[in-house]
């Protein structure tokens, strides 16, 4: 590569990178300056933390954080239990109609939970789970994607290990717990990262099912806080936005490699 094309490549790549993080940088700028300094892009204006203080006092953020945290935990536990059992059944057990059931599960990959909001809402209301964290998490627990992922991971386990454990007198669930689950650890980790970041960021379904600050996750809280009816200014909205994305963003910056690997593993099936 000649040095000119190399320079052009670096220049283009870095220019695009700067454009790509510009919205975040401007939000950081706005959040740390007074509104009038922020919108005038007054580069020498003083820094301030007032916006964060105003934003923090403007809504029950701690509660929202806790709700989001509980929500992603509940979903992850439910997903681990269901996808492990179902994935194991599809990978290693024989039962009548297995292939047809598996196709039914795969169909769920395309019938997105997002599209089923009307039906899921009716179902969750019938179950009496409206405005509960369990109600928000439930439609995602029997994840077809997770079942598929676990099935692939379990299929990769050598059958000799299975046989050895059986001869040692291990029951079926014991084999699953002692042989398959430990060997699928990287898949669990990848799946957990994808699941947590998906549900940390989810909005539409929680917006529909929650109706009080006691259940509302961060994303819904943020959208209510920033609504024009509330008349908050752009610096305060920026501060609130940065506050709510900070935990996930910091985790991402620290564990960047694991995040990217997780998304790849989860994506290339």
């Amino acid at each position: 590569m000649t040095s000119l094309t190399k320079f052009m490549d670096s220049f283009g790549a870095i220019l695009l990178a700067i454009i790509w993080i510009a919205p975040l940088l401007f939000a950081f700028w706005a959040a740390t300056h007074s509104t009038s300094d922020a919108v005038n892009l007054n580069l020498f204006s003083p820094w301030t933390m007032d916006n964060f203080r105003v934003a923090w006092n403007g809504a029950p953020w701690l509660k929202y954080f806790l709700n989001t945290f509980t929500l992603v935990t509940v979903i992850l536990i439910g997903q681990f239990i269901l996808t492990t059992l179902a994935g194991f059944a599809f990978a290693q057990l024989q039962f009548p109609g297995k292939d047809y059931v598996f196709i039914l599960v795969l169909m769920q990959l395309f019938i997105l939970p997002e599209v089923l909001i009307v039906e899921n809402y009716a179902m969750v209301s019938r179950l009496g789970l409206f405005d509960t964290i369990l109600g928000v998490g439930m439609p995602y627990m029997a994840s077809a994607f997770g079942i598929f992922l676990m099935r692939q991971a379990f299929k990769g386990v050598p059958i000799e290990l299975h046989e050895a454990a059986r001869i040692e007198g291990c029951g079926l669930l014991g084999i699953l717990w002692r042989v398959y689950v430990p060997l699928a650890k990287p898949t669990y980790l990848a799946y957990a990262l994808v699941s947590v970041s998906t549900h940390w960021n989810n909005f539409l379904w929680p917006l529909i099912v929650t109706n009080s600050p006691d259940t509302r996750p961060l994303t819904v809280g943020l959208s209510i806080f920033g609504a024009p009816e509330n008349g908050v200014d752009i610096s305060v909205i920026s501060a609130a936005t940065l506050m709510s994305v900070a935990p996930l963003l910091i985790a991402f910056l620290i564990f960047q490699r694991q995040f990217v690997q997780a998304f790849l593993r989860a994506g290339i099936k």
Partner: peptide, 22 residues
């Protein structure tokens, strides 16, 4: 460069919308 390209992926769409509002 890699980090900058990938970062929007980990943000909630709601937060992204707030950033772009600016």
């Amino acid at each position: 460069v890699r980090t900058a390209y990938f970062t929007p992926t980990v943000l909630p769409m709601i937060a992204a919308a707030n950033l772009w509002l600016f």
